[in-house]
Nucleic acid binder design. Structure first.
Lengths: 114, 114
DNA sequence: TGCTGACATCACATCACACTGATGCGTTGT
DNA sequence: ACAACGCATCAGTGTGATGTGATGTCAGCA
């Protein structure tokens, strides 16, 4: 590590979008998110649906909770989970800006006059 | 459980969507993708823009190429890169199905009668 | 009051991924 | 023909993330 050396912001993208994509990248987490987008569920339901172990589900739910994309509502012995309102809106916006189903992007600059 | 134990498809999501999210999850790759969504570029441009090393950029471009989301067009000494048409459309569809900015999802089943 | 069930937390092992340096290849220019 | 350049590939390394088992906590019930 250099002593000063700020981590270097690479491109004008809200960094939260990248971390939201990371949340969606794991297949088990994506299954959890999709299930929660259809109905509120508690942990044991997700264990049944996905076939993963309770500890694994709980770990992923903690990540999703800390990222603010799911909300936990303890109710007696159970804990109901649901998607937070506006969850992944940032990722959707960033992805929409990229997909751009128009014609090919132009070549704005000459080849490598660094 | 069946004795043969097939790898167990977890949820009816095209698995390609998950891997597309994985491509978007890395901040450097996201920077490359966003840059290519605005204009076609060759490797050296991406080295300039991102500040990463040429080898690193080349590695990421290979991943993006193999995933079919960017197209390479060699032209003499240079290689122009651009986003493939319809790249990340699968991810956009999957994400759109999840975001659902309506009211909260319902509780369709009782708590944990596994 | 003691047991069971739902869920969270912790420590650990494993594994995949990203970065790097060295090297090779094809093209351009002199 | 040789050098410089753009770019790809390869092998090595370190780090972070994921799954797992053990354990702890709290609520409900007999």
């Amino acid at each position: 590590m250099s002593p000063v050396a700020v981590p270097l912001p690479r491109v004008p993208t809200p960094p939260v979008a990248g971390s939201q994509f990371a949340l969606l990248a794991d297949p088990l987490r994506l299954a959890i998110i999709e299930a929660l987008s259809r109905e509120q569920l508690c942990t044991c339901h997700l264990v049944d649906i996905t076939g993963a172990r309770q500890t694994t589900i709980s770990n992923h739910l903690r990540l999703l909770r800390e990222a603010g994309v799911v909300l936990a509502e303890p109710e007696g012995r159970y804990t109901w989970y649901r998607l937070a309102p506006g969850a992944f809106a940032e990722a959707l916006r960033a992805l929409g800006a990229v997909v751009a189903d128009g014609p090919d992007a132009p070549r704005l600059r000459p080849a490598c006059v660094s």
